[in-house]
Design a protein around this nucleic acid. Sequence first.
DNA 1: ATCTGATTGCTAAGTTGGTGAGTGACATTA
DNA 2: TAATGTCACTCACCAACTTAGCAATCAGAT
Lengths: 148, 148
Amino acid sequence: MVAEVVPGWRPSGTLDALQELVDVAAQVPQEVARRAGLSTSELHALRHLSGGAMGPVDLARALGVTSAAASGVVDRLAGRGHVERRPHPDDRRRTEVVLTDSGSHEVAVRLAPMFAELARVDSELGPDEQAVVERYLRGATRAMKAVL
Amino acid sequence: MVAEVVPGWRPSGTLDALQELVDVAAQVPQEVARRAGLSTSELHALRHLSGGAMGPVDLARALGVTSAAASGVVDRLAGRGHVERRPHPDDRRRTEVVLTDSGSHEVAVRLAPMFAELARVDSELGPDEQAVVERYLRGATRAMKAVL
DNA sequence: ATCTGATTGCTAAGTTGGTGAGTGACATTA
DNA sequence: TAATGTCACTCACCAACTTAGCAATCAGAT
């Protein structure tokens, strides 16, 4: 796609596959969120919260939006019972946003099938192959981070 | 992140790296679009159009939005001189949206650095390693498509 | 040749989810 | 203790989407 327009380009199956992966990976949250009746930001918020509680501002940073927007996200998720606000024990400015059972259930139900498939793909790799793939993925991630 | 909530999960460096890659890859267009003074949809449209001309409806499908939204995207891109509408030679219903020089320049300037870096990462792989990586990427893509 | 249905691209109106600015409460540093 | 910074929030505003519906055009069946 970009090949025609970027000078000094050599076609590569790997890069082509990477582009397709990234494209599809971007569509998945859209579709999953639609089915769950959530916005993509709400879904991503649930995903991030599944790794542990965090405040609205942390969420804002993770989602790449303003704290005002994150406030709204938490409002809507709380309204659906997917998360709960609780006061931070040590810092009384903060609010901890905690995933409820309903919230983690939502994440599990919607994303588990995909992760199961990904795990299967993963298991088809030998140990040395896994190392190669991981090195490539980390490298590609670094390359992308470089333009941020 | 999702590990805690998906039953029967085994930690894997590959999957972890994949998740990080996908997350970062989703942030890149946001940031690049911001710098270019475009919406993410507009940037993605430019990217898709760099592979060849297409109509607003095709664009809508590629972007995952309605044709009404795609109409607006083309309007705004045309307003900035990045694309041009021209009548389709054979089908008089259709409009072909064509990238202008300004448009392809925009794509090249904004995305070339990242692709250069990605090509470098790619070039560090041996031929057999490339095959392994590509097979994994294609497999992961199929796994994601399965939930769409 | 004409009817039917599908497709394309668009407009209009309404909804949504975001930003920017600003506030009060609290924490941290000088 | 004063100054500065951080957190979570509200408010007004706006960009970009949606749904609904339109006229023009095409393709297939009759």
